[in-house]
């Protein structure tokens, strides 16, 4: 398979993935927008007024980057985990297994599909946030690159979860018991500098802290973490998860007997 053919295969997977989540847009694009709008109203408008300023910004402005990032993380992950698991469940994964596509084309095709959904939801949430807060993007390049890398990272996570999953319960375990707590404790609603020193240090084990702060730095110009460290952590996690995903496909774990 030459490069041109591999590109055709890659773009086929992406367009199939985009077709899938846009076909069921009421399930994939609208609910996260409603959820985040409620966060804006409750945490930003109602509670935020009593909180005052955080990091030199209104509480509403401070939480907007974190809420956008939260929606990107959740949707990138859930798109890939549900899509790849349903190909296993319906056995249509065999269409890919019998084809000459290299494993990296399959992985990046699904990952980019997840990124497409994460970014679409992120764009909708950003649009909604403009009704509640004034956003001046300090560094567009950092903002775009950090959100894209984060979407890639969680799409890879969703892919690995789907490979191991044997039932629909298995694809909801990680989002419920790992992803949601890490996101809520990842500095979306507060600065980790507001925590006692011990908990601020513990928070730095959470990878989502680096992504939320990197993204917040791009938009607001403030971060609890050095931006270089944030990029480094995200890239290291991407490389590790990609290596893991590739190894799983190579071995046929969960998809070949």
């Amino acid at each position: 398979m030459n490069w041109r053919m591999q590109f055709n295969a890659f773009s086929t997977i992406i367009s199939k993935e985009v077709r899938r989540f846009t076909r069921i847009w009421v399930q994939t694009l609208i609910p996260p927008a409603i959820t985040i709008a409620l966060y804006f109203v409750i945490f930003g408008e109602l509670i935020g007024r009593r909180v005052g300023e955080v990091g030199g910004f209104d509480y509403m402005e401070y939480i907007v980057p974190g809420l956008i990032m939260m929606s990107v993380i959740t949707n990138s992950y859930s798109n890939v985990v549900s899509s790849f698991f349903s190909t296993k469940f319906q056995r249509s994964v065999e269409e890919m297994l019998v084809s000459p596509m290299p494993n990296y084309v399959v992985i990046w095709g699904f990952v980019l599909g997840g990124v497409a959904r994460g970014m679409s939801v992120g764009a909708i949430v950003t649009g909604l946030s403009l009704f509640f807060a004034h956003l001046d993007v300090v560094n567009l390049w950092i903002t775009i690159s950090m959100v894209t890398l984060t979407a890639v990272l969680f799409s890879l996570g969703g892919f690995i979860n789907a490979v191991y999953a044997k039932s629909f319960d298995d694809i909801s375990v990680v989002p419920t018991f790992v992803l949601t707590p890490l996101t809520y404790l990842g500095g979306v609603f507060y600065s980790i500098n507001m925590l006692p020193e011990f908990w601020a240090t513990v928070s730095k084990i959470n990878p989502i802290v680096y992504m939320v702060n990197g993204f917040r730095y791009g938009i607001l110009g403030v971060s609890d973490i050095s931006i270089g460290v944030a990029y480094g952590m995200v890239i290291v996690f991407i490389l590790c998860l990609y290596g893991w995903a590739h190894w799983l496909l190579q071995r046929g774990v969960g998809i070949r007997q």
Partner: peptide
Amino acid sequence: PQEFNFNQFEKVADILRTQAGYYGLD
């Protein structure tokens, strides 16, 4: 194969076009 193994929610033409894409056809 012996068992149906295509996406039951895809349109018939999309199933073929997708499979062609997997084999690198433009």
